[in-house]
């Protein structure tokens, strides 16, 4: 159905002032933009650094990008529904801490408390928004500080190391040449894609983003859907925290700091507008690849590390500038 929406071009004379075959082509170009942009990045970086396209580096890219991917999958639902969550990084930190603290006794099963606590944090965000009617930006701005504060309180600022062999074997080993992290990330991507594509929930998320008042009046359980999507994001952040902890073999209060900005950037660069109602998981997947490849490619081609942030910011703005269909969004805020 996302295809149906994107394929649209207003034909009604009273709705649009421009159009014609030119507008149609621009629209088609825009739809394939994330893929084209990704291809351009790959070509450019391959020319700049021959090692960029090596299997070794590809594996590194996927490993580096997994935490971003897993969290961005969940954030896609939130953004497609027209909400936002900026507590993503903090939930990742909380979950990593829970995983670290329980890994000694539970081993690989530390996944259960880590994901559960993540889901709980997300659920609380959802309740604040859906029941408390606090706008999601403000609600998660507040909970972000609280969640990270919890980590600081329990760790007193000191890192908690993860030493359990079983835990590390499960989440940071490599099998058949593929890191477990990457396998888990891709599996979750497929699950998230299926949820979005094949369930009623996925459609309800888009409907809420397209028109919340319409959705309420049409009998969609808006409160329930909103809580569910925040819970889903929380659980995925829990998973991401666990994977991040396994990678760094420790949980710190600084873990996932600023992650939410990369998450939002990935979703938006993939072509999902912040106003909601449009988008797909495939878009997000491409967005994550773009954001990750950009950092990795600049490192590989030896771009001055002190220059990289500037380039990254500019590229993201340019990407979104070209990518967004302003006609559909109407008002840019």
């Amino acid at each position: 159905m996302s295809n149906a929406i994107k394929a649209h071009r207003p034909a009604d004379a009273t709705l649009t002032r421009e159009g014609g075959s030119k507008g149609f082509q621009i629209d088609r170009l825009r739809r394939s933009f994330p893929a084209v942009f990704l291809a351009v990045l790959i070509v450019v970086f391959t020319m700049m650094s021959p090692r960029f396209l090596s299997l070794d580096n590809l594996s590194t890219v996927l490993e580096q990008g997994t935490v971003l991917l897993v969290t961005a999958l969940g954030a896609s639902f939130i953004i497609m529904a027209g909400s936002i969550d900026i507590s993503v990084g903090a939930i990742v930190a909380v979950s990593a801490l829970v995983a670290a603290m329980t890994s000694d006794t539970l081993g690989a099963f530390a996944i259960i408390p880590a994901v559960a606590v993540g889901a709980l944090c997300g659920c609380f965000n959802g309740l604040l928004l859906a029941v408390g009617k606090v706008p999601s930006f403000v609600a998660t701005l507040g909970t972000q500080v609280v969640y990270r504060g919890l980590v600081l309180y329990f760790t007193r600022g000191a890192p908690v190391e993860i030493q359990d062999e079983g835990f590390l074997a499960a989440y940071s080993n490599v099998s058949y040449g593929i890191p477990h992290t990457v396998m888990i990330g891709l599996a979750l991507a497929i699950v998230a894609w299926a949820i979005f594509r094949f369930t009623v929930f996925g459609r309800e998320v888009l409907a809420i983003g397209g028109g919340e008042r319409v959705s309420i009046l049409t009998g969609i359980a808006v409160t329930r859907v909103k809580i569910t999507m925040f819970l889903l994001l929380g659980a995925l952040c829990g998973m991401a925290g666990l994977l991040q902890g396994a990678r760094t073999m420790a949980a710190t209060s600084q873990l996932g700091l600023g992650l939410e900005l990369d998450v939002i950037a990935s979703v938006v660069v993939g072509g999902t507008p912040l106003t909601g109602g449009l988008g797909s998981i495939t878009n997000t997947f491409l967005g994550v690849l773009i954001v990750t490849l950009l950092s990795n490619g600049m490192n590989m081609s030896g771009v001055d590390p002190y220059l990289q942030n500037i380039i990254k910011g500019v590229v993201l703005i340019v990407a979104v500038y070209i990518n967004i269909d302003r006609k559909k969004i109407g008002i840019i805020k």
Binding site: I5, G211, L278
Partner: peptide, 8 residues
């Protein structure tokens, strides 16, 4: 929802 399809 104007941006969604007739079917949706």
């Amino acid at each position: 929802i104007g941006s969604h399809s007739v079917l949706d």
